[in-house]
Amino acid sequence: MGINQLSTLEHILITTKVEKVMNWSRATSVWPVTFGLACCAIEMMAAGASRFDFDRFGAGIFRATPRQADLMIIAGTVTYKMAPVIKTLYDQMPEPKWVIAMGSCATAGGPFDSYHTIQGVDKVIPVDVFIPGCPPRPESLIYGFMKLQDKIMTSSLADRYKDIFEEVG
């Protein structure tokens, strides 16, 4: 038997950690909530359409309700009137949840430094990945999404429950 040939048992068994399996399953089936606000929404739709297919990452099904979604892609400008709505929607998403801030408006207010624009959505909700661009090309969005997948793959179960673990001891 050569070194590279698998033994009989290895044909049907993979050994791994529970954490790795959970991370892999979470990263490869992230379901975003439809949350296009402005111009970046058009590029998000283009990313989901035929040329830059988003479905091949497992993220093709955009859920209409945040209660069934994992990911919120803030695509567009966040305004003062919209910020409480974003907060409510974020709170309605069940854990584990991630946020991608797509475009310069969601990152830092973009070209709109005015009285009604919040300078960045991270003043409203915590953000995992920032994607610059105005609007970012669909390839940029896919790159940012892959970075998020990397983040999910390397995250550990202890991240979100750190406070509870520290309390319990």
Partner: peptide
Amino acid sequence: YPLRKDYPVVGWGQRDISFREDRGGRL
């Protein structure tokens, strides 16, 4: 009234309210 000439473009500070501290506060 924003479009008056004595109103600065960045406003009088309403946009700088931090929504994040209010985690679940509204509800």
